[in-house]
Amino acid sequence: MTATIDRGKATEPVTQIPSRPRRSRRRVSSNSLKAVMAVSGAVLVLFLVLHMAGNLKIFAGAESFNGYAAWLREVGYPLLPHRGLLTLLEAGLVVAIAAHMYSAIVLARRAANARPVKYAAKVKSRADGYATRTMRWGGVIVFFFVIYHLLDMTFGVANPEGHEATPFDRMVAGFDPSRWYITVFYVISVVMVGLHLRHGLWSALQTLGLARRYPVLKASAAGLSALLTLGFLVVPLAITFGVVR
């Protein structure tokens, strides 16, 4: 005996949407690119801590500040050549910034590619706030700030005292009360750096798989970012308001 069971529509073959052809070219995984961002970001954070400590020497007077700047160029001499360690560190920073930016650009392009059709309704953010949403454009702004900052303080091109002056004189001239708009620009930029760090610090640990106890982690990230922001802000503000002259 044979039985014919008619299941009707339910068992009819469904027309399959063909899956996209597999990419033949092997790409670096997004996770690996994020790890590159985390490690290069960590290098830059370490640099910022040292940079801030150096800046604060301005409160110990011109001699201390200039002495520190000179020491940076002489450290390790005569074992290392003049400016040896500093050049090495600078090269490391350039590599870190390049790696950080390259990964960010590739990831941003992949993200844009992952959502070709946008939502019609405004997508409501239900999670972390401003700092998280401004990572990409904030990073771009920080990059342009760094370029100006180098022209101002390192190369002296955008500084009234020029390259030949002592670091202390350049610093004091740069944030002279008459150049208050420069100070405002620095304040805004440094706050952008702080926001970038607020998300970046804990995000890096998350990316490397080291994140634990999120409330503590996020609070620490916010605390450290605030500390760095204040440490960097106090110097230009002190000069503009005449505390350091």
Binding site: L33, A112, S125
Partner: peptide, 22 residues
Amino acid sequence: MVEQMDEEGFGGCTNTGECTAV
């Protein structure tokens, strides 16, 4: 699984936390 996720064309994680919120 991570590589397949990339292969499918999903973007990378930037730890925004929007996912866990919804």
